[in-house]
Each structure stands twice: as structure tokens, then as C-alpha cells.
Design a binder for these strands. Structure first.
Lengths: 200, 200, 200, 200
DNA sequence: GATGAATGAGTCTTCATTCAT
DNA sequence: CATGAATGAAGACTCATTCAT
């Protein structure tokens, strides 16, 4: 049936577009309705609130990313290719679709954020699993030093290169800063020495 | 003139506080006036608009950062220490005060952003200069491979580690993505091999 | 026709329930549809408008009341019992179901109120007839003074004890106030002396 | 100073007018603003919300009533006059200004109703005190039977003749109905015998 | 009979900004 | 210098009603 009626899709597309162009708070329901060429009230037939539109748009984009990422990682050959894939694709997405986040997260009331929290760990896990796959691959090829701490490195990359949870919890700034302090050693180390096994 | 009257300072302090706590769009002039314990109209005696308050607050914070950074870099010894300083301090600032940015940048109309553009290159230059200082120091100590491309690496670090211009120009997403594509090779390289001179 | 289809009854019951719980204006057709477990549009198959649902619900309740009142009055013995019946039952109804009225009457546009006006005199007549029956009964028993003006007293009781037309016609306030002025003498008289024949 | 600036008064007057004419829910802030010849936003300079306007209007009217009532009661001579005064004036007010109540009370969210609750007992007390004064006066004149239960009678009159708390607590219908059951004996008694001392 | 989808008009509220004093 | 008062424009959301199927 029409769970995802064409109208709903039109709304979602228009919203995603406008959100990523102009940010969450500057995109009004009037704008979305105009872009989707429907009446404003129609939006409320499909979504209970502006926040819900946002969250649904976000979820769609994330899923889209994972599907694409898994496929391309599979096709990539060599650790450099795979690593590059792992960084490039999400970044492209982040820069294309996620800026909405930064705007939105502070406008959206707690209850909704909690709903986001349910998805986040799952996303992280999927990203981590993919990264550990690459590290394993690197080890099998004898390219990586045994002491590379896969999970921690994965977390680091997610946090730093992918803006991980950076903005999620502005109130929790202290936690973030403590994490930075803890991580910066590892970052300096990588910056200086990389993670390739050194021939002694 | 009264550029630095105590009232103006109170407004600026209150604004900075509220902006970094609640984000730019959720901070109303009413809030600022209440926090600064002055009448709302008074704000308009000192600032032509909400955006101006924001930009001035931002400038102050940036200056504060540079002063502290330069001092601490001077005191740090060894390339690891200096690098760590170079990364840690700005990051702490970014995470403490800059999230305002993400919120604000999309709310602020173009004309104001152009004014920001005037400052940005200057900030970059100062950051780059500091970084090149570190690289030179590394070379002098014989620690860094000759082929390290200081300026480019500096730019990279600024962009990636410090969220550089990430959100500044949402409309210019393509430019950013092209830059990412160009940079990712370097990042992979660093991730794998670091920048320390390899003993052959 | 389906004047009495089960669906219509379900709608009417749900509506009566919600109206008396939450008042007319706070009960939306969405609420009614949800409570009746039918689609909102279905309501319009049975009722031309929200007002019509209300009027029909009101009529049902009134009929219910009269049936019960007549039966119990018949069974009551002695003038005190009968009077008490006459006051208690309608009042119970008024307090249970009629508050809807107060809310509704001001929301409902004139044309509909006129329709109500058609029913009202009829209700009054039935109430008056019942009351006159009681007075007659009192006279037969030799309990009531001859000068008791049955119809006027009946009207008074209906107006005052039963919130008679109180809210029906807000625009007609002056008429109501004039009636109050006229009636208060009678009320004072009753308050002071009652209606029982005084033994001289 | 201008605690009650002229503008505020204008708003309040317009609001009271419209509320009592058209009811609380059908009176929009647009209407009020138009009637007061100010911009809608100006209302919010003086009142935090529509509910607050309503409560303030209500309070004003109540105070007005008490002042007038006390004065006229003082001037009235004879128990009949006083009683009549006691019934007529509040009733006139109730019918003129209080219908707003019925509409409003179900539209107004709990927190505001609680604020009303703070005033209500106070109003009751004042009404009761005035009534007891009349009863005492009647006793002094040797007109009233000793067994007249002043406080209870006062309560009764307030509840029944003045619509006392009738609509205040729709959720508390059971309490009201129990009270009716309890009171109806007294009402029947009064209806039959009045409260004047019977000459034996 | 019944309904999913769509909507226009309206609701209360917020907020940056202006201006006379 | 400072402010109390006032406002226009816009915001998210509600709801009775319509209509094709």
C-alpha cells in the first residue's frame, strides 16, 4: 500500500533539500510546503511535527550512506583504497547532508534527541565493524603493526574525521574535551609515525 | 566614543555566554538583555543588530585564543609537545566556543558573512605561520623528512582537525568536497606513514 | 435510510462522551473519529456538521431525562417526594450532561441555535406540565395555599434551579436581566415564607 | 507610575467586552487587538498569554462587584431589601460577566485554574460574611427562626443561586452531585416553608 | 457505506527592530 | 545614555470540511 505515498516522498525530498541548503531553523514549513507544491496542512497529515520530518530525513540519508559504503568497500582493493573509501564516502555525505545536524540539534527539544540516541550507537557499530574489517585486511596482508588498537583507532576516526558526536551534546562539553585530551596523544603519534608497520 | 563602555562589555559577555550555551538562534535579544540586566533597547545603542553582537563576540574569542596559543607554543619543548599544543588549544576553544558558529552561520545573512571573510584569511595565516614554525623546528632538529609540504599540511590540519571552513559556506559545498577529494590522499598517507623521516 | 445505523450510534455515543468530558470546542472531529473507531470522513456521511452532532446528542439526552423523570414522578408519594424528584433528577442530568451546553452555545452559529429554539419551548412545556401536576396534587391534599401561582413558580424553578435559559442567548442578556429583576421578589418571598399554606 | 498604562486598560476592556460577548474560545487575540486598536504583538508586552488576560479581566470584575455590593447592602433597609440586594447584584454580574467563565474554564489549562483556586475561597468567604451579616440582622429583628443554619444556607445560596462552583471542576462532577443530593432536602424545605420564624 | 488524502483559514506566540522621550 | 512602549512579519500547529474513489 501507500505507506510511503508519493506525497510523503515529495515532502521528505523537499524538506531534505531545504534543510541541507538553508539549515533546520531557517527552513519553515511554509517553505517546505511551497517546494513540495502542497498545502502546509498536508504536511501534518504525514508528519506530526517539524522535528519528525527532520529525523526521518536524517534516517533515510544515513541508510543510503551505509548501503553505498558497504558496496564500495567490497569492491575496493588494497588497504589504501579501502581506507580512502572509508573516509571519503562518509565525509562526502557529512558535508553534503549533515550540516543540517549542527543547526538542528540545538533547536530540537530533548525528547526527539533521545530518539536519535537510539540510532546513534547502531550507526557507530556499523562504522566500527567496517573499519575493523579494513584493519584485519591490513593485518592479513602483513601491512599493519600488530600493536594497532583497531577499536580505539576506529573511534578516533569516527570522532575526529567524521565529526562523530561532536555537536550532539552541547551540554556535555566537558566530556568531549576530556575525550580530546585523551585522544590527542594518539593523534600526534599517528601524525608523526602513521600506522604502518615499521621495518626495524 | 564608547566602544568599550562597561555596559557594552556586559552585553558582550552575556551574549557570548548565551550564544555558546543555547546557540545563536535560540538566544533572543530579550534573553541577552535580561542576562546583562539592561533594557533591550539599550543593546541597540551599542550594536546595530544581533548579527553584529555575534561577530564581535566571535572576534574576541579568537583573539583570546591566539594570545594564549602563541604563549604556550613558545614555552613547549620538543616537536611532539609543540604539535600537541597546536592541536589541543584551538580544539579546546573550538569545542567550547565555536559551536555557536555552526548554528549562527546559516542564520546570518550574506552581507555579514562577507565581513567574516575579511577576518578569516588573517586567522588562517596566523595559524599557518605558527604551524610552519613548528615544522621548521622539526627540520632543524633533523626529525622531519625534507619532502614534508608544510603549507599544505598546515592547511590540511586546519581544515580537518579544526573544522576549518567546514560550515562557513554551505552554498559552496562543491568546493569543499573537491578539496576533500584532493586531500584525502595526503590524509591516507599520513594515517599510514606519518610525517617523521623514515630511517632507510 | 440509515438514521439509526450502528455506526451513527457509535459516533453519537463517542461524541456525547467527549463533549461532556472535555467540552464542545475542545472536542475535535479527530477525537470523535478516534473514539468511535471510524474514519473522520465517515462522520460526514451521517452528520452535516459538528454542530449537528452536538444538537442530536443533546436531544437524545433530553429525551432520556424525560422518560426517566415521568416514571419516577409517578412512583413518588407525597408532595415532598415529588418535588424532590422534580428537582433532583433534572439537576443530576444538568450537572452530568449539560455543561456541554455552556461551552457549545457560544461556539455554535445562530442558524443552529434557532433550531434549538424549536425544541426548547417543548421541553419547557413538558417540565411545566409535570410541575403543575405536582402543584395540583398539593392542592388536592390541601397542602398548598390557593394563591400559589403554579405556572409562574414553575417558570421560576426552571429558570433558577435548572439554569433554565441562562446561557442560551448571550446576546439577549438584557432580557434575562429584566427577568431576574422581575423574579427576585418572588424568590425572596419563597426564601422567606415558602409555598406551604400558612395556618392562620 | 504606569503599572496600569492606558494601553493595558484598553486591552483589558476590549478583552472583557469580547469575552463576555463571544466567549473565551471564540475571542481571538486578533479580535482583541483590533478592538483595542493596537498591534497584536503589543498584547504580549502586557500579558504573557491569553489565559492571563482572561484571569485578570475576571479578577477586576469580581472586585468591582464586591465594592458595589458592600456599599448597597449597607444602604438597604429591612431584611427583604438586604436579601434582595444580596441576590440581585451578584446575579446581575453573573449574567453579565461570568458566562465567560463557563466557556473559558474548560479551555484553560490546569496551571491557570490552580491560580483561580487561590481566589475562589476568598470570594466565597466574603460572600458568606455578607450573608451572615444579613442573617444576624434578621435575628436581631426577631424575624428569623433560631434554627436557621446561616453558614449552610449561605453556601447553598452561593452554590445554587449564584452558580457557585458549578462549572469549575468538570472532572469533579461526582463531588458536585453528592452535594446536590445532600442539599436538596434543605432546598425542598425552604421551598415549602421559607426561613421566616413561624408564629406558633 | 466508508475512507484516505488534502486543504484554507485561522490560532497563539515569538522576536528583532524602531522610536519618542 | 538608556529605556518603555509598540509593532510587522513570521513561526509552528489545529481543525472543520471536501472529494475522489
Amino acid at each position: 500500500m501507500n505507506t510511503n505515498s508519493e506525497t510523503k516522498t515529495r515532502i521528505l525530498n523537499a524538506a531534505t533539500d531545504l534543510f541541507s541548503h538553508y539549515g533546520y531553523p531557517k527552513t519553515s514549513l511554509d517553505d517546505i510546503a511551497r517546494a513540495a507544491q502542497i498545502a502546509k496542512a498536508t504536511i501534518y497529515y504525514y508528519f506530526p511535527s517539524k522535528e519528525d520530518i527532520f529525523l526521518e530525513a536524517l534516517g533515510n540519508k544515513a541508510e543510503e550512506l551505509f548501503v553505498m559504503l558497504e558496496r564500495e568497500l567490497d569492491e575496493a582493493e588494497g588497504i589504501e583504497d579501502k581506507l580512502s573509501c572509508y573516509l571519503r564516502l562518509p565525509l562526502r555525505y557529512i558535508f553534503e547532508y549533515m550540516p543540517i545536524l549542527a543547526d538542528a540539534l540545538n533547536q530540537i527539544p530533548q525528547p526527539y534527541l533521545l530518539r536519535l540516541e537510539e540510532y546513534r550507537p547502531q550507526y557507530r557499530q556499523r562504522m566500527t565493524a567496517l573499519f575493523l574489517g579494513i584493519i584485519d585486511y591490513g593485518r592479513e596482508q602483513g601491512l599493519l603493526a600488530g600493536e594497532v588498537d583497531g577499536p580505539r583507532l576506529s573511534e578516533l576516526i569516527n570522532d575526529w574525521f567524521m565529526l562523530g558526536d561532536i555537536c550532539f551534546d552541547r551540554s556535555d562539553k566537558d566530556r568531549i574535551i576530556r575525550r580530546i585530551e585523551r585522544d590527542y596523544e594518539l593523534i600526534i603519534h599517528i601524525l608523526l609515525f602513521g600506522i604502518i608497520k615499521r621495518k626495524t
